[in-house]
Design a protein around this nucleic acid. Sequence first.
DNA 1: AAAGAAGTTGACCAAACAGTCAATTTCTTC
DNA 2: GAAGAAATTGACTGTTTGGTCAACTTCTTT
Lengths: 229, 229
Amino acid sequence: MPGKQAASAEETANAGRIRRGQVLHIVESAERAFAEAGFAGTTMTRLAEAAGLPKANLHYYFGTKEKLYRAVLENILTLWLDDMAPIVPERAPAEALGAYIRAKMGHSRARPHASKVFANEILHGAPHLRGFLTHELRRRVAEKTRVIEHWIAGGRMAQVDPVHLFFAIWAMTQTYADFDVQMRAVLGCAALGTAEYDAGEQTVLRLVLHGCGLETNDTNEGEQGRCRS
Amino acid sequence: MPGKQAASAEETANAGRIRRGQVLHIVESAERAFAEAGFAGTTMTRLAEAAGLPKANLHYYFGTKEKLYRAVLENILTLWLDDMAPIVPERAPAEALGAYIRAKMGHSRARPHASKVFANEILHGAPHLRGFLTHELRRRVAEKTRVIEHWIAGGRMAQVDPVHLFFAIWAMTQTYADFDVQMRAVLGCAALGTAEYDAGEQTVLRLVLHGCGLETNDTNEGEQGRCRS
DNA sequence: AAAGAAGTTGACCAAACAGTCAATTTCTTC
DNA sequence: GAAGAAATTGACTGTTTGGTCAACTTCTTT
């Protein structure tokens, strides 16, 4: 028998093991379901099916549909803010903005459902995200705005409104997750693949960097990145 | 007494007068309601309240909630395609793209509800717009893509992927209608006014035109277009 | 002004909904 | 392995939903 300290540490590590696992599993499957139909359009029965569990089990862990939805949202929010990390005054503007755009495009591709849930929430007035928008996000944008104003004051990039620049970057990158159906229809392909994401990233990089009066290290000329079909 | 022909013409003009008026009124008020909560989140009772009519009256004119929703969508679609009219080979690229961007920004400001209903529909897989996306929109984009390729071939603008350029313009302009809550929170203002729309338009114009290697006739330097509060 | 067509509406209904609960099983601890 | 805690689940419930309908009013035509 292990000593009491060891057992206690093991206990606390073990305690709620099932709970943590189930909560994570339900939140992840719910993200996909909410992305497909929005909060109002997703039924508890559908969420239960998505998780492969009986409805009552979801209520056991989350109480209400709204609390489950909030858990999904909170799981997503950190992603948004953390992407902005590359934007620091020490880095060169082109490099920092480029890294930010690449990170955002990467998230659109890796976590399209998260982006859609977020977009849906904002679209309908952000009733569950007011605090996040007016505090965390606003603060973070103000902080990064100062970095960009510092670059502009130092003559390192053109005079662009930093806040509207962020709006533009968010819009252009997130649209690859949120409006993928429209893109697939226009491009005539079944799914957005590496070719489409690369072409999109090149375009966004080009617009932002040239728009800010910065150089692009654009080596691949002829590439157009359409889909084959 | 007017002659039979005159009376008949008057009749046909008059026939369905009430119907046309009510249908238009219901569709317009429903656009706002659907924009606020999406298709699933909007109840027939809410739609009836928005129109100031009893629920049964809406069913008299549209039959089902879905048919009313489709009527709202169809009312919106023409807007999207018509905006692309300025893009013709005869015009200078900067002028044509500038006019297009201004038209799209104007619609975001004038018809934000229409934009939100459209965005919500695409976000959830466009179940009612598949045909529009894969036929009308696709054809129109292909047509305008040829114009841009013509400009590029003539050395009149930089080599930018035309389709992804459209995606970028759509995203940047529509975000001013769709994500207004986020913008208001970040900017700290109660509503997006002329100052914010002007700053946004300047930013979008700058990114697109510089991104395409075109000149901007940017005369207003110091303007930053924040809100006062 | 008669008569039919068009429009209006309160009361009603079956289905779907989020949420509850008690009975049961599985896990953890000693 | 006993006993309690945590997790699971089928059956149930009150409410809300989209949609119907028959009675009624207003409009249009002759």
